[in-house]
Design a binder for these strands. Structure first.
Lengths: 150, 150
DNA sequence: TGCGATTCCGACCCCGTTGGTAGGATTACA
DNA sequence: TGTAATCCTACCAACGGGGTCGGAATCGCA
C-alpha cells in the first residue's frame, strides 16, 4: 500500500480539528476517543503536524490543539508530506522540485540509465496533483454529511 | 515510498525484453547481468508477470522469456498490478472496480464513516491514470535514447 | 542417453520499518 | 498544590521486503 497509518490517523485528526471552532483547542484525548485511536500514538503523529506548522498547541489543563490556518487553506499535499515524509514512488527516487531534475541511484549503471524514472515521475505527479487539489475543508464537509451506510 | 523493488525490477525486466526481438526468448541470466540484478530474485518476479499473462516462457537450454504481446499493447497498470498486487493507498482500502464502491474497514465506526476515503480514492485514481497512460513501448523508446548523464 | 542450460518452486533468513507502549518531564489552570 | 494536558525519548513486538539456497522439471544437443 502507499501510505501508512500515520497519514490515515493524521488526516482523521485534522478533520476532527476542522469540525470544531478554531478558537478553543481540542485535547488529543477527545480526538482519540472520538476516532477510536491510541492516544500515545496520536501524540507522536500530531507532533509532525505541529512541526510543519499545520496545527498549534496549548499546554496545560484545558489545553489541546487547533488548526493554525483556516481549513480551506490547508492543502492535503502539505499534510501528507508532513506525515509521511517525501512522497516518492521508489527508494531510488529523489526529486528536487526546484530544478526539474529527477535523480536515481541506478543512474550510474552502464547503458540506459533509469528508463523507469519516466514512469515513476508520472506516478508521483498523479499523486501530488490529487493531494494538492484537495483541501481540508472539503474533507470536513464530506465527513459532516457522510451517511454511515452508503 | 509507494512501490517496492518488485515493481522497479519487474518493469526493468519488461523493458529489457522489449528491447529484443519478440521472436526468440531472452534468458533471465542475460537480463540479470545487463541490469545488475540478483538472478534468483528475478526468477520470483518474472513468475508474477507470467501468471498475469504478460510474458511467456520457454524452458530448457536456449530458453528464456519473451513478451506475450507487442510492447505497445502492454499498459503499465497491468504490469504494476501484477507485480505489486492491488494498488491501494491504504490497508483499509478495498475498491471493487466493478461497482464503483469503496469499502473501508473503519466504516463501522459510529459517526462520520471514513472521510479520508474521499482523499485516498482521488490519490488512487491519480496513480492508476498515470500508469494506464503509459505503455511499455514508450519506456523502451525512452531507454533507447536516454543519455547516461543528463 | 546423458549433460548442461534454463525455467520452475518452495523453504528459509536477515533486517529495517511500522505500529504501539511506557514513563517521565514540563506547562498551565483552578 | 493538584490535575489535566502537552511534550519527549526510549523501548519493543510483529510484519513485510529483499534476498538466498537447494532442488526439481524440462528442453536442446552432442
Amino acid at each position: 500500500m502507499i501510505f501508512t497509518t500515520k497519514a490515515e490517523y493524521g488526516v482523521r485528526l485534522l478533520i476532527e480539528l476542522g469540525r470544531h471552532d478554531a478558537g478553543q483547542p481540542v485535547s488529543l484525548k477527545a480526538i482519540a476517543d472520538a476516532e477510536g485511536l491510541p492516544l500515545a500514538y496520536l501524540e507522536r503523529i500530531v507532533a509532525l503536524l505541529r512541526k510543519a506548522g499545520l496545527v498549534e498547541s496549548t499546554r496545560g489543563a484545558h489545553g489541546g490543539y487547533r488548526l493554525a490556518r483556516p481549513a480551506a487553506e490547508i492543502r492535503m499535499d502539505e499534510a501528507v508530506l508532513a506525515l509521511e515524509g517525501a512522497v516518492a514512488p521508489m527508494t531510488c527516487f529523489v526529486d528536487d522540485t526546484e530544478g526539474q531534475r529527477v535523480l536515481c541511484s541506478h543512474e550510474t549503471d552502464k547503458g540506459n540509465g533509469c528508463a523507469t524514472k519516466l514512469l515513476w515521475t508520472r506516478v508521483q505527479g498523479g499523486v501530488v496533483k490529487a493531494l494538492a487539489n484537495t483541501t481540508l475543508s472539503e474533507l470536513v464537509e464530506f465527513s459532516d454529511r457522510a451517511p454511515i451506510n452508503a
